[in-house]
Design a binder for these strands. Structure first.
Length: 493
RNA sequence: AGGGAUGUAGCGCAGCCCGGUAGCGCAUCUGGUUUGGGACCAGAGGGUCGCAGGUUCGAAUCCUGUCAUCCCUACCA
């Protein structure tokens, strides 16, 4: 077999690619920067989506859908927003093709030029605020809490499966509020939703914090983010929420009459999103040389049962299958998804490797020998250990095991992050540590110039100013100027 | 956008220097033997050699043009 995957230690980028392609999550497409998400990968995304959607609704949001195509003029209404996205927009200029008179297939019909060009949404703030203008008149229309699940396009120079593609799937929440306080609360609340999701479902710990001015979303007053640490030592922004202030309300003239009357006010806005990039985060957080490691709560198949079917002994095979079905039915009743592999053309060793590559959390193996001894072999994906379990106790055992795996990989990821998060006070050490990878807590004088200089010298950026960082006076790592707080540095994806 | 490289079967490649009508591994299909950690044997199918021109009796190979992709430098959820 040549299908083995590249060792992580050998080439982590290749390893990542191998997992995505050979693990059956996605494929390259013929369009540069665009990927095909395959059924197995999409099943994981759907599980993420279902849980996030549930959380959004639980916090009072409803779903809607806004158009893919946005009039070009909308984008220019909010100055910093245009600046942020103009360089990576796909533009629709024509609406018709025609047969090439020279017989070379079809060509763009030059007569079908659009009067106003349309851009394919890189994000939907503009078209949404242009719509909200008509929906909001009074404080009674507020808060407006809407989410949309959609695809967006950002024309990227360098792409990487799931982590950075020209088109990606995401959700974007867009809310309108009467007061600044309420909008900020919303921004914080949704960041919390993301952080909880990452911890509880993805088993991935994240740091929460505020972006510096230079890393802020184009058009926001404040950008909050969650930052996770990947196994290559680089940080990954896993989600963001923005307090947009009145920027978009002013740009699109969205005003409301406050309670008690008086003068009309511009509404306060937020937006927040996570994308299929989370798939990349999931892979880069837990997986290793045997393949993917999926947290049970997101695994499309949580348990695979492999009976050693005996071609020459159909009677034993029937018993093995009956036992497998019995276990499957019992586990299904507990809401656990189970697949029985009845394929007789592949050998067990191949199947073991295959399900490890795909990250199935628990594998049960039953052969004739086990049937005689009333045992079942249980293998867990996260630490690759195997044990023999009494058949009577298998259901409880598996249920407990899935919880263990979920908790264990979280703990592992947490330990990794703890080991790779350093507090540093000297420039020499800082440079050394950034080179080694991981997060670094260090003092910063608060200026954009220093931030830029540090990036230039070390390729490290300020990932965020953490929320839970206590005030502690110190000296900036680069300039030695006064600093009130440490910030979180890392090289980022 | 600047520098380097590569386009040959689904995938990974050889062949090109020195022109003679396309090959290897994996995958696929058929038959058989296997099955407690990626099985083996036998056979089969699959190609406008990126595209367009040119040189030549003859081009994957030489020449010209063109398109595409990948890697290294500047911007990004």
């Amino acid at each position: 077999m040549s299908d083995f995957i590249t060792k992580r230690s050998e080439d982590i980028n290749k390893w990542y690619n191998d997992l995505v392609i050979k693990g059956g999550l996605a494929d390259y497409s013929d369009v540069r920067g665009c990927m095909v998400i395959k059924p197995y990968g999409y099943a994981i995304w759907e599980k993420m989506k279902d849980e996030l959607d549930r959380k959004f609704k639980e916090t009072g949001h409803v779903n809607a859908y806004f158009p893919l195509l946005i009039p070009k003029s909308y984008l220019s209404k909010e100055a910093s927003h245009v600046e942020g996205f103009a360089k990576e927009c796909a533009v629709v200029t024509h609406y018709r093709l025609k047969n090439d008179p020279d017989g070379n297939g079809v060509i763009v019909d030059p007569e079908a030029k659009l009067e106003e060009e349309l851009i394919i949404r890189p994000t939907s703030e503009t078209i949404i605020w242009n719509t909200y203008k008509n929906w909001i008149q009074s404080y009674r229309d507020l808060p407006l809490l809407i989410n949309q699940w959609a695809n967006v396009v950002r024309w990227e120079m360098r792409t990487k499966l799931f982590l950075r593609t020209a088109e990606f799937l995401w959700q974007e929440g867009h809310t309108a509020h009467a007061t600044k306080l309420e909008a900020i609360e919303e921004t914080e609340k949704m960041l919390g939703v993301y952080a909880d999701f990452c911890a509880d479902f993805m088993s991935m710990p994240v740091y929460k914090g505020v972006k510096t001015a230079s890393e802020r979303f184009a058009g926001a007053e404040d950008t909050y983010c969650i930052e996770a640490l990947m196994q290559d030592g680089k940080a990954l922004q896993a989600g963001t929420s923005h307090f947009l202030g009145q920027n978009f309300a002013k740009a699109f003239d969205v005003r409301f009459m406050p309670e008690g009357g008086g003068k009309e006010e511009f509404v306060r806005a937020t937006s927040w999103g996570v994308s299929t990039r989370l798939m990349g985060a999931l892979i880069l957080t837990h997986s290793h040389d045997h393949g993917l490691v999926l947290p049970p709560k997101l695994a499309p198949t949580q348990v695979v049962i492999i009976p050693f079917l005996q071609a020459k002994n159909p009677e034993v095979s029937a018993q093995l299958l009956a036992k497998s079905e019995e276990i499957k039915t019992a586990l299904n009743k507990l809401g656990i998804s189970v697949q029985i592999d009845k394929d007789e053309t592949k050998r067990p060793g191949f199947k073991f490797a295959e399900y490890e590559l795909k990250g199935v959390p628990v594998r049960l193996v039953i052969g004739p020998r086990d049937l005689e001894n009333n045992l079942i072999e249980v293998a867990r994906r996260d630490n690759l250990t195997k044990e023999l379990v009494q058949a009577e106790t298998i259901i409880e055992h598996v249920q407990k095991l899935l919880e263990d795996v979920q908790a264990n990989i979280y703990q592992k990821a947490m330990n990794y992050r703890t080991e790779h998060t350093k507090t540093i006070d000297t420039w020499e050490e800082f440079q050394k540590q950034i080179e080694l990878g991981g997060f670094v807590y260090a003092h910063w004088d608060g200026t954009a110039e220093t931030e830029e200089k540090i990036k230039e010298l070390t390729k490290a950026t300020i990932r965020c100013i953490p929320f839970d960082m206590e005030i502690s006076a110190g000296k900036c790592i680069l300039t030695g100027n006064d600093s009130q707080k440490r910030v979180l540095f890392a090289r980022a994806h």
